[in-house]
Simulated scan of single mutants.
Amino acid sequence: MARYTGPLCRLCRAEQKKLFLKGDRCKSDKCPINKKRAIPGKDPKARTGKRSDYGVQLREKQRIKRMYGMLEKQFRLFFERALRMPGVTGENLIGLLERRLDNVVFRMHLAANRNQARQIVGHGHILVNGKPVNIPSYLVKPGDVVEVKESSKKLNVIKDSLKEVSKSGSYSWISIDVDALKGTFVSIPHRADVTDLADIKEQLVVELYSK
């Protein structure tokens, strides 16, 4: 399957906003956004002027898509699914993205970032309700138990990531048992609960795809 293999910091520079793609580095002074690095490309000044409505909508879609580490085709499928669901389409979309297994593993602090979470899931280190699942886009349901399989509990990458629980705490829609390396997806989060996406305007994505 196709995937982005270039430098992750370049994506943040392109959006001129932090996408938190590299864990602790994004919170440190080494982040290129903190250093006010220029937009990547041959003529960055040409892309800093006033954007059209379409340009604003496109950038917001790209930003959300890159934060969750998805390519266009898969992201569009998630949007179409959200569109068919009852309720507000934008909120449905965020709810679906938060239900992705790689995102749940990241939210449980079993990985430093979503890219690392996809690798952990893809390499077969995660169980859902006691059964191995190696599909990062697998949608977790309320009540599902997500855990690290027994033979993978000694992985340093997981142990190091769990230290973030004491720093950042847990999320209200996921209960975590740090000692057992497992957690329960309690409920689909309300839009207001996802505070790290507070400045995201998912309605712009709805407007873009509705044209």
Rank of each mutant, 00 (worst) to 15 (best):
M70P: 05
Q74E: 11
R76V: 01
L77R: 03
F78G: 08
F78N: 06
F79A: 03
A82P: 03
L83F: 13
V88N: 15
V88F: 13
V88L: 09
E91W: 09
I94C: 05
G95E: 08
L96I: 13
R100S: 13
R100T: 01
R100N: 10
D102E: 08
V104G: 08
V105I: 14
V105E: 04
R107Q: 01
R107C: 00
L110T: 01
L110H: 08
A111S: 11
A112Q: 12
N113P: 02
N113V: 11
R114G: 04
R114H: 09
Q116Y: 09
Q116F: 10
R118Q: 11
Q119W: 09
Q119I: 01
Q119L: 13
V121S: 05
V121W: 07
G122M: 00
H123D: 01
H123P: 08
G124N: 03
I126M: 07
I126Q: 06
V128S: 03
N129G: 14
G130M: 09
P132Q: 14
V133D: 10
L139P: 11
K141Q: 12
P142D: 01
P142M: 02
D144W: 06
V145C: 11
E147Q: 13
E147F: 09
V148T: 07
K149D: 15
E150L: 09
E150S: 10
S151P: 12
K153H: 05
K154W: 04
L155F: 10
I158V: 00
I158L: 10
K159C: 07
D160I: 00
S161C: 00
K163Q: 11
K163D: 00
E164T: 15
S166C: 05
S168N: 10
S168T: 15
Y171R: 05
S172E: 15
S172H: 09
W173K: 00
W173Q: 05
I174T: 11
S175H: 04
I176S: 11
V178L: 06
T184P: 06
F185K: 08
V186M: 03
V186K: 02
